[in-house]
């Protein structure tokens, strides 16, 4: 008697197969509930920011009624912040820093990952692990020695100091992501390219980068987010307002002594969050997993 036939005779086991639909329904319910809870937890703060940014100073100070509702919505905070030369400066600083950091990070980590993943050389494995280990050192610890270095280079109070130090946060992780992506590209693809006449740089440029594009996009998003949202390093290295990025600029310049311009802070923070959202939305369209499909027998 076969195992399947035996199962049919045992009550419960065979029956269970029929309840797949019910199990699926349960799984869906659990998924919906937990996702909804998670969405509420994560979306409540930005929603609160949005509500507050639409209120006038009087309404915020009034503290009457529900703080989740706006009685007389106004764009005054947005107008104030956009027209403020200070805010424009912060935005520009953040854009310059992030663009430079992302470019620098991607060049370094793609080249490093290609070498570590593909050009077999003595110690490459150890180096790859070493690169990742540096990521495990938190920036709250690193900023002290880095302060010395940045100071020594005369780059304190300068966005270029930040451009120099942010890659210590982004390069290790991006290199690690790229090593993983490059390692997943079949070895025969480089061999085919080598035989077809490609040099190593041509192989990287014409084969690896296009094939590993989803990985490169993931790494770019990571580098962008880290650089845009960095807080510890600018707090430590920049004190002059005209060199501040958005993250610390909004906080430090919109709080005068103990007066918090809440409406403007919220409007500024929301607008600061806009570029990452745009980048995500734009890059996600290109983030198609499984680009290697069809290269080899799969």
């Amino acid at each position: 008697m076969s195992a399947t036939a035996m199962n049919r005779d045992v009550p419960g086991i065979y029956h269970k197969a029929g309840s797949l639909r019910a199990e699926r329904r349960w799984a869906l319910w659990v998924a919906y509930i937990s996702l909804t809870v998670a969405a509420i937890i994560f979306l409540a703060p930005p929603f609160y920011m949005l509500i507050t940014s639409l209120k006038g100073s009087a309404e915020i100070a009034g503290m009457t009624g529900s703080p989740w509702l706006v009685r007389s919505p106004t764009l005054e905070n947005y107008v104030n912040i956009i027209t403020s030369p200070m805010f424009q400066r912060f935005m520009l600083n953040s854009l310059v820093i992030t663009a430079c950091v992302v470019a620098l990070t991607m060049v370094v980590s793609v080249l490093a990952a290609f070498a570590l993943a593909r050009m077999r050389f003595w110690g490459s494995q150890m180096l790859a692990t070493g690169v990742f280990l540096t990521y495990l050192v938190p920036d709250t610890l690193l900023f002290i020695p880095l302060y010395q270095i940045v100071g020594g280079l005369g780059l304190l109070n300068s966005i270029w100091g930040l451009v120099l130090v942010y890659p210590t946060l982004t390069v290790p992780f991006c290199t690690w992501i790229m090593i993983g992506y490059f390692a997943s590209i079949p070895k025969e693809l480089d061999e085919a390219a080598l035989i077809d006449g490609a040099t190593w740089p041509q192989m990287l440029w014409k084969i690896f980068i296009p094939v590993a594009l989803p990985g490169i996009i993931a790494a770019t998003i990571f580098a962008f987010t880290v650089s845009w949202a960095a807080f510890v390093y600018p707090t430590a290295f920049v004190t002059t307002p005209d060199q501040m990025p958005l993250t610390i600029g909004v906080v430090s310049q919109l709080v005068r002594a103990d007066t918090f311009a809440w409406g403007q802070i919220m409007a500024g923070a929301l607008m600061a969050a806009l570029p990452p959202v745009v980048i995500y939305a734009f890059l996600m369209d290109y983030y198609i997993a499984g680009l290697t499909a069809g290269a080899t027998k799969g």
Binding site: P186, E188, L189, E191, A192, A193, I195, I207, P210, V211, L213, L291, T292, A293, G294, A295, T296, K297
Partner: peptide, 11 residues
């Protein structure tokens, strides 16, 4: 060279 797993450039 022709490889066992084809090794075509997927992009």
């Amino acid at each position: 060279m022709v490889f066992q797993n084809y090794a075509l450039y997927p992009h």
